[in-house]
Nucleic acid binder design. Structure first.
Lengths: 189, 189
DNA sequence: ATGGTCATGTCGCCTTGTGACATCACCGTA
DNA sequence: TACGGTGATGTCACAAGGCGACATGACCAT
């Protein structure tokens, strides 16, 4: 018989998710999370940099998919980023609406988590922008195309998880929002 | 003779700014800041929510100017936001390049401060978007116009404070970046 | 003079996050 | 079979962030 149960990291993530939902983020201590996972506080900190990180693990995967998609697509930079996000929407978000909703509701309830989410988005943005620069685009163009794409994704996500949403295709929503953005910046006055 | 020196808040902000530059954000304790300002740690926490806030005080002023400018301007939403930021650039940033550079260098050196800056930007964005909605625009349009404007501002700011920058007109830079964004989202392929 | 108000200081507490060291199953090797 | 190494975990101790409760004392109105 093994000395330790397997997948300590996964157990901690699950425990954190449950506890954040049950009592809220601030009312949950790291010791609580570790206890529910049958581990020690110190072990938690070996696997996660801090309490917030337990909620932000899929990030690297997302970044990988995005960067790859952007690098391989060969249309205009803005179109490339939007296409990459649509791919992410299909690969990663499909059939996960309820999960995403729960996650969002946790994040919205805590300023600390909102800050962390913002930073995650920001570093993801930097990675995508770097991928665009690697294709020969200028600093400014890469930054604007990437941030526009991220913005479209965020607005579409907000609409997708909204209570009024019918939970239709997230990828289609992204395309719609991209179109809105185009008309918005184009139309003078 | 007064029992307390005046402007405790200002003294704490100044002390924090100095210490963050001298030793770095993480190496500075709240007790250090308070001591340099001739105050107690507890007093610091009465005036600021946390250690980071000592560096983010002009934010409310900025938000006020922006919201007012957006509400009063009467062109397309994106144009309104860009115009508002150009006004801010002239009113608040002119002749403060060195100060802004120092501030930025402090923020860049600390992940915690970066997170906080992101959140400040985010709440400012929300305020501007609300001002646009108050003018009758849809949720999505307001969000896209605002975020586009904020993005333009951020990219322009990055270029303005960059070491290679000639320190020319920040407002002009904003106009340039806005134009770049238009061509970028417009051009298909 | 009297009492209220308000900014500040003092004290004590819990939580976050980390360094240093102990433990002990597992594994390869003699 | 014994032995030592490795790696994940627990234990202990501690600095710092952040907050509640209470004390202090200058200022002000009456």
């Amino acid at each position: 018989m093994a000395r330790w149960q397997p997948d300590a990291r996964g157990r901690l993530e699950a425990a954190a998710f449950e506890l954040f939902r049950e009592r809220g983020f601030e009312q949950t201590t790291v010791a609580d999370i570790a206890a529910r996972a049958g581990l020690d506080k110190r072990t938690f900190y070996r696997l996660f940099g801090d309490k917030r990180e337990a909620l932000f693990s899929g990030g690297e995967q997302l970044e990988g998919v995005l960067v790859k998609a952007v690098a391989e697509t060969d249309v205009g930079p803005f179109e490339a980023v939007v296409a990459a996000f649509r791919q992410v929407a299909e690969q990663i978000f499909t059939d996960r609406l309820e999960l995403v909703r729960m996650r969002q509701s946790i994040i919205v309830s805590s300023p600390e988590l909102q800050e962390r989410e913002l930073r995650k988005t920001s570093s993801l943005t930097a990675a995508v922008a770097a991928a665009l620069r690697a294709k020969g685009l200028s600093e400014t163009t890469a930054a604007l195309a990437t941030e526009s794409g991220v913005m479209v994704f965020r607005v579409a996500l907000a609409r997708w998880v909204a209570p009024e949403s019918d939970g239709g295709s997230f990828a289609d929503l992204i395309a719609e929002v991209a179109t809105e953005l185009r008309t918005l910046t184009t139309a003078p006055g």
